[in-house]
Design a protein around this nucleic acid. Sequence first.
RNA 1: GGGCGGAUAGCUCAGCUGGUUAGAGCGGCGGCUUUACAAGCCGUAGGUCACAGGUUCGACUCCUGUUCCGCCUACCA
Length: 881
Amino acid sequence: MTTDIPKNYLPQEIEKKWYQFWLDRDYFHAKDRSNNPPFSIVIPPPNITGSLHTGHALDNTLQDTLIRWKRMQGYNTLWMPGTDHAGIVTELIMERALVEEGTSRQEIGREKFIDRMWQWKDESRGKIISQLQEIGSSCDWERERFTLDAGLSKAVRTAFVKLYDRGLIYRGDYMVNWCPNCQTAVSDLEVVPIEIEGNFYHIKYNVKNSDEFLVIATTRPETMLGDTAVAVHPEDERYKHLVGQTVILPILERELPIIADQYVDMDTGTGALKVTPAHDLNDYEIGKRHDLETINIFDDNGTLNENAGKEYVSLDRFDCRSKLIKDLQSQQLLLKVVDHLHAVGHHDRCDQIIEPYISPQWYVDVKPLAERAIEASKTGQITFIPDRETKRFHQWMEDILPWSISRQRWWGHRIPIWYCGDCQALTCTVDTPDQCSDCNSKNLKQDEDVLDTWFSSGLWPFSTMGWPENTELLKTFYPTSVLVTGWDILFFWVSRMIMLGLECMGHVPFNQVYLHGLVADEHGKKMSKSRGNTIDPVETIDKYGADAFRFAIVYSTIPLPYMPLPEYQIEAGRRFANKIWNASRFLLMNLEDYDPESSVEINPQLVDKWICSRFDTAVQSINEAFGQFRFSDAAHIIYEFMWHEFCDWYVEMIKQRLYYSDDPVAKYTAQTVAIDILDGTLRLLHPIMPFLTEEIWQQLPVKGESITISSYPEPNQDSKDAEAEMKMRVIMDVIEEIRSIRGEMNIPPSTEIEILIQAPNADTRQILETHLEENMRSFTKFMKVAIAEYQEKPKSAATAIIDDLIVYIPLSDVLDIDEEKKRLQKKLEKTRSELENVEKTLANKNFVERAPKQVIDQKYERKTKLESEQEKILLNLHMFD
RNA sequence: GGGCGGAUAGCUCAGCUGGUUAGAGCGGCGGCUUUACAAGCCGUAGGUCACAGGUUCGACUCCUGUUCCGCCUACCA
């Protein structure tokens, strides 16, 4: 047999071709208006930080799968793509580059720095988009957006002004999480507590005009330079008498009041607490209660300022700590140092230790927005999948704190607030004002800060569709259908979109939120660069092909927080692709005389009816699985059907008709059904493996321009054929038993055997007589099959028992009698133990009285079958005696 | 401190609202150059379903408790 179709599937040559084909035909472009129902997803915009990782591949594969599925179902689908400017992270990358060039952002200035950022954005964006295309993402590229685009910037200003006018945005001096490295405030969510092995430094504070002293235990001795009090618990007998007195702060010799406050825990440390209102959130609260002075001892970059005293000014905070410890030691004021394990906040973008720091910042009072968000979830306007995320969402929303939105950075949306140099009034408008809204002065200066990146991404579901204009696109696609993203950004992003969507649009931004797990390695450990267990998507696609990668991803997407994606799974994806390729190759090679236009009436045989029935079951379960976001299940079902039903059984069984049949209708029927099922299976699979399915589909004798816009299979009750499935079960059982004997008896496939079957039941006999022989030829070489109501057992034969059937395979001299005995003995044991269980159950009065009739009937049936089998096995075993 | 999830074959996971013999992928072992596929085909071995109770005629499945593992959240210096 000759063919020009390669023996192995070679994805590299195929993927680019079809992606371009799809783009050229504009298949991914959504219509602004359509009679078809809408289905829309906005992409979680990747940060323009360089390139994509496996997490992105996962996220976008799932979105593409859903979009392609819905597109094929006839929906007007919009997958809105784009990228995020990602403020701080991207700036850090640029700053590193500048340092390498021997300069810095301060040196080149704000304007030039921003220019450089835009250049970087163009490069990075291009790389990201091409990677998204490599994995096959069917985004509507004509609508691609970037968070700093003019349109989106207008949306940001509009949203800001709206919130400001409602009084929900305010500015003030508060204690924030300050990153001395990035020199900006960061949000609570960006601070990750990391356990570190620190120390408790026990420091002696002498009481003024007394011989007494207090011992203070602290993990951060350098902050003592900003101490303005010492606090004890009001009921602490050890210290009660000292309250109201004064201690002398070591080194600076400042006088500090001893105060009593409920906050102090008597059992922690020494029970005496140094109070540094400027550098600790709790101390800040104590300070407010007791009207204490607030002394800031740090500069923006984490070095000590002049308030720290001459000895320490300009030192880095950790150098200061070391020096201070030495100085205290030399003055005998450091009593002891104890190991102490405690959690310290680190900035998740740069890993530096966060400093609590008082500074002027802008805030959104999100409490009222959060209440609406909770309401939207409780009333079912928005649902989370998996359901456990709903609770997480509620908990966080209920305890929400004001959102600090100003960042002391340059790359981002500058806050639309202008300060008047004359009357000090604030002007907040969407369009850049040319005069003060209060006194009309032209002496205006815009706020230097930019907004938190999440502020602009929070508007993404509608800013990308043209808001604040009331566009056709918004009317058609807002609220979007589903948001697909990792559970780790539920608070960062999803929650903000929900709040801002409700506020700006009056509706939730999406009806469903599917939160997938994070990609892990084969041992369930999260993939991370520091662990060195990452998989590079580009390399993976080069090596295995995009479809194999996608299949592995969908197959692995389980509803757990971490999902293993081992390399062997991607290999399995490649093998699956190759299997489909070859099955298709085989069918295509057998279509030389096939005329799809033929008027010949097909005449389906048992296997044809069977595969159609099985296909229908697959169609039904896959549609259900996708509808419930059970991605792994969908992939399993299609894999099982394609490989183990279509390839292993159906294709094998029709070989007879394709190769040897002299009945043209029989052959034509096999071709027609095979092509039909292959066509349907490819369409089922297309959302998961778009390239391979398109390549094959284009070669099939089926009508249509592209599988991408063909229809997705729907369940069809008419295809269900329980009788065909039952009959095929009998045939398959017999074939499997024969194969098992061949395997265990080591009979080479080339050896022809004789098969004798005893089938006392007339119906079963009929099935075997009609269908066995023709369907068995592809599976085993035999010279003769004899089916009868009763068969005399040949002298030395291997025996298989299936229900009331006995299959004999005479093996005159080759039969290993001991092996055969062992085989039967094993089967007997299995049958006997199960039979005992069934008998025990049926002997139980309570069972017979209370169990449903259906279950009881099943048990009786099972019992009959087992008894029949046992009896026959025993009979055959006795023949050896 | 509060909350969530997990514990099933050597590894990673399925097993839905309790009901025949607990499955898959990968791996193991044995056999096949069968003309679609060795990235394949056939056969086969592995599990007292973490532990202890309870509900039930019946529990991997439901309930309670215990032990591990992972995660989220929280201001204990």
